[in-house]
Design a protein around this nucleic acid. Structure first.
Ligand SMILES: [Mn+2]
Ligand SMILES: [Mn+2]
Ligand SMILES: [Zn+2]
Ligand SMILES: [Zn+2]
Lengths: 138, 138
DNA sequence: GAGTTATTAATAATAATTATTGACTTATAA
DNA sequence: TTATAAGTCAATAATTATTATTAATAACTC
């Protein structure tokens, strides 16, 4: 998710209507580093849009995923979380505070993920996450 | 999951009873490289134990996870899969055939996962998986 | 501004997993 | 071996995240 104008332009060019609900989700997600769940997004946006339904949140998130403006991550067993940063990066889940921290490859001393071909398999993408105790909780 | 005798011994020492249903799940899982879902396990074992319930499969899998004889993996969106290999290794999910292949670190040229401390966070474990087209499907 | 059509919100459906319960088994010790 | 307590089974119901359906509504085009 690049910038608000950029994203709006993308929706327009793909033929999606710009509804207040969608704009709200987009504004909420842009630059958001908290990796929120659908529940968290809905909870927050319901304050401004009291009739906003869960379906709309899911529909919008799925749509944004399809046009590659956000991605979902699998760090918890029972639900997905959403991330506006679609560049390859790593996640760290803290078992103490349940926060998901970003780790970028340049900060990741000792980590190297070559994603071309592995053991004869052709790689399209990868997902790497760590679990442990985060910086703030140690 | 080391060996049948070893696992049986572990159940005994932890105070678990050795029921035919548990033994069936254990036998099915030991050395199984297919990363089956709870559904697949139930489907297969129901042939020999027609009254075997889903709850028992889940209970047994959760119990085996607690005593660290198997682990669950998150490569699909809507369900978990189970793996008797609890040693750190990598998974490759093929988008064509939906098979999950194992990749061990020694085969993984270009992959390095240092799991001690990253960006100030203390690492307990990691999960790495790739998506793409597998060896057999290329 | 009116017509067309995608989108919304409410509701119901789906599906994986977990909880409950009462009958039944097993391990152990008398 | 038998009694007993602890643990387990399977059936059923409950929970929860997500998706499908649908009639009413609101964006966009002209
Ligand atoms: Mn992230
Ligand atoms: Mn494996
Ligand atoms: Zn923390
Ligand atoms: Zn394949």
């Amino acid at each position: 998710m690049h910038s608000f104008e950029n994203t709006i332009q993308k929706l327009r060019s793909e033929g999606f209507k710009l509804t207040p609900q969608r704009l709200a989700v987009i504004k909420y997600m842009i630059g958001n580093k908290s990796h929120p769940s659908a529940l968290a997004i809905h909870k927050e946006l319901k304050r401004r849009y009291p009739t906003l339904s869960f379906s709309t949140v899911y529909n919008t998130l799925n749509m944004l995923q399809k046009i590659d403006e956000i991605r979902s991550i699998h760090v918890f067993d029972d639900h997905l979380n959403y991330d506006p940063n679609t560049e390859p990066h790593i996640h760290f889940l803290c078992s103490k505070c349940d926060m998901v921290h970003d780790i970028f490859l340049e900060q990741a001393e000792g980590i190297q993920v070559y994603a071309g071909e592995i053991d004869g398999h052709l790689v399209d993408s990868y997902e790497l996450f760590f679990k442990g105790t985060c910086k703030d909780c140690r």
